[in-house]
C-alpha cells in the first residue's frame, strides 16, 4: 500500500506518539505500507524552508520507503530557489503546499506561477487543504481550510499539472469535488474521508481512479486507512487502484 500523506518532524502544538521517523516507519510497515510520501510539519510555520527541506531529504534517505515532498512557500522571498533545490538537489518527485498557513489564496498570481513551474519540472503538487479540525485549533493559530474555488479554472489551461489534495474530504464534496476530479489532473486521499463505508460510497459517486490512500500520520492514528478499507466493499480492481495503482501511475507519468 502507498500512503501519500505522511509528515516528519514535530507537530507544532503537541508531541505525537509516532513523531520519530524510526518509530513512524516501523508503524507504517506494520500497516503494510511500503511507500510513504512525506512532507515536514516544520514546513507549516518555519520560514527557513530550505533548511526544512534539507532535513526532510536527509531524514528520508536511510528509509527506502520514504519519498520526500519538500515545502514551497510562494509568500517567501526567492521561493523559486526552494522549488529548484527540491527538484535538482534533493531529487524530490513533488512538493507540498500550505496556502492557508502561508497566507495566500489560490487566485494569487504567485500560485499560478508555482503551478506552471512545478509542471515544467514535472513535479507533483500536494496541496494540504487542512491540517486539523478547525474547531480544535489553538486559539492564536486559527487557520481556515484552503478555499478551492479558483482551482478548477486554473487547471483548465494547464494540462500538465498534477495536484493531490491532502485532508480535503471534510470540506470538499458534491459538485465542486466532481468538477475537480473531472479535470483529470486532481487526486484526493482518504485521511479525512469519513462516514460509514466512506471509500465504498466515494467509489460509487466518483469512481476509483482519483482516490489515493492517505493516513495523515503521525497526526492521525496510523491504522485508520487499513480499517477504512476493511469497512468498505470494493472490487479487487478498485482496491488495487486505490491502494497502489493510482499512486504509482501518478509518480511515473507526468
Amino acid at each position: 500500500m502507498i500512503d501519500v500523506n505522511v509528515s516528519l518532524s514535530h507537530w507544532p502544538f503537541r508531541r505525537l506518539p509516532l513523531d520519530q521517523t524510526q518509530t513512524l516507519v516501523a508503524a507504517l510497515k506494520r500497516e503494510k505500507i511500503h511507500q510513504a510520501w512525506a512532507g515536514s510539519f516544520d514546513g507549516i510555520l518555519h520560514r527557513d524552508v530550505a533548511a526544512v527541506n534539507e532535513r526532510l531529504a536527509s531524514e528520508c534517505k536511510p528509509h527506502d520507503m520514504l519519498v520526500p515532498f519538500g515545502t514551497v512557500n510562494p509568500s517567501l522571498p526567492d521561493w523559486r530557489d526552494d522549488l529548484r533545490r527540491c527538484h535538482e538537489i534533493h531529487k524530490m518527485p513533488g512538493i507540498r503546499l500550505h496556502p492557508n498557513y502561508h497566507s495566500y489564496t489560490l487566485d494569487d498570481p504567485k500560485f499560478a506561477q508555482l503551478l506552471d513551474e512545478a509542471a515544467a519540472r514535472a513535479m507533483i503538487v500536494q496541496l494540504a487543504v487542512t491540517m486539523e479540525d478547525e474547531r480544535t485549533q489553538h486559539p492564536l493559530v486559527r487557520v481556515p481550510p484552503v478555499d478551492l474555488k479558483p482551482l478548477a479554472a486554473l487547471i483548465a489551461g494547464r494540462s500538465k499539472v498534477r495536484i493531490v489534495l491532502l485532508n480535503a474530504m471534510g470540506v470538499l464534496r458534491g459538485a465542486p469535488l466532481k468538477t475537480l476530479l473531472n479535470t483529470g489532473r486532481v487526486w484526493v486521499e482518504t485521511a479525512t474521508l469519513e462516514a460509514v463505508a466512506g471509500i465504498e460510497h466515494f467509489v460509487a459517486n466518483y469512481g476509483a481512479k482519483r482516490l489515493l490512500i492517505g493516513s495523515h500520520a503521525p497526526f492521525f492514528c496510523v491504522g485508520a486507512a487499513q480499517l477504512k478499507l476493511q469497512e468498505s466493499i470494493l472490487s479487487e480492481q478498485d482496491a488495487a487502484s486505490i491502494t497502489e495503482g493510482n499512486a504509482q501511475m501518478l509518480l511515473k507519468s507526468p
Binding site: A27, E194, A197, V222, G223
Partner: peptide
C-alpha cells in the same frame, strides 16, 4: 466511520 474511530484504540 467505524474505522477512523476504532483506529483511536487500535493504534
Amino acid at each position: 466511520s467505524f474505522a477512523s474511530q476504532l483506529a483511536k484504540v487500535r493504534s
